[in-house]
């Protein structure tokens, strides 16, 4: 469903992504692991069109999305949450979700229904009229997910959705992601807590220095010495 072929991104001459080739089947749930600076967020930014790509192609359902404007990529079915929560703080919870709910062609009534349903899934129905900026941090995390749910995406890019949360809250958020998206939605999940990845994603990608160094079952990767090596910054065994 998502085919990434030879993807390259450069910042000031430094290769942030050095030719990634990844294939994601429809509905797959895949963890994206790697140390800081390994290119995880840059991969997400490249898919959603926020950074210019220096080479390679990205295809969604056979259609090239690399080079499209971010709003076109979103319309093609890519949803996204951010590492540091990013909301419209001055808008109400419902108004955060409403403009992206349903399709562009949907009537305002359908959009409202879709938005309310998404808030319901995330457990935010009661807070729908307060400003997003007044929500607690855990609720803000859930609102980001509700927004993605309302978008009914083909692909969700979740960038550390449990960052800054307690263990119990993290588990809740992972459970929410797991149940909120149907089998049609593929999920790419960036996480530092390997346990959270394991709970949601049977398969994981391991990035280091802008390259794909492993693509395997998450459980295997957890046991694998090389993961620890990558995380703790020791040299990769060649």
């Amino acid at each position: 469903m998502l085919e990434i072929d030879g993807l390259k991104v450069r910042f000031d001459g430094v290769e942030a992504l050095a030719g990634l080739t990844i294939s994601i089947p429809a509905g797959a749930r895949i963890g994206v692991l790697g140390p800081n600076g390994s290119g995880k967020t840059t991969l997400f930014n490249a898919i959603s069109g926020l950074v210019a790509i220096a080479g390679g192609t990205i295809r969604l359902d056979g259609r090239a999305i690399s080079g499209l404007a971010p709003h076109q990529i979103a319309a093609a079915g890519v949803a996204r949450t951010f590492q540091s929560v990013r909301l419209f703080h001055r808008l109400s919870v419902l108004d955060n979700v409403l403009p992206i709910a349903g399709t562009a062609a949907a009537g305002s009534h359908d959009a409202r229904e879709a938005a309310l349903a998404a808030l319901d899934v995330a457990g935010l129905s009661a807070q729908r009229d307060i400003l997003a900026g007044d929500l607690g941090f855990y609720d803000q995390r859930r609102l980001e997910i509700a927004r993605a749910v309302a978008q009914r995406p083909r692909l969700l890019l979740a960038d550390e959705p449990t960052g800054g949360l307690s263990q119990a809250e993290s588990d809740q958020v992972v459970a929410l992601i797991s149940r909120a998206f149907g089998p049609d939605t593929a999920i790419l999940l960036i996480e530092h807590q390997v346990a959270a990845v394991e709970a949601l994603c049977p398969r994981s990608l391991l990035l280091a220095e802008g390259r794909l160094v492993a693509d395997a079952a998450t459980s295997d990767m957890r046991r694998d010495r090389s993961l620890a090596d990558v995380y703790f910054g020791t040299r990769l065994a060649h």
Binding site: T41, V51, P70, F82, S84
Partner: peptide
């Protein structure tokens, strides 16, 4: 503009 905004906020 976009890359700057990304660098700043993401």
């Amino acid at each position: 503009d976009r890359t700057m905004a990304v660098g700043r906020r993401v």
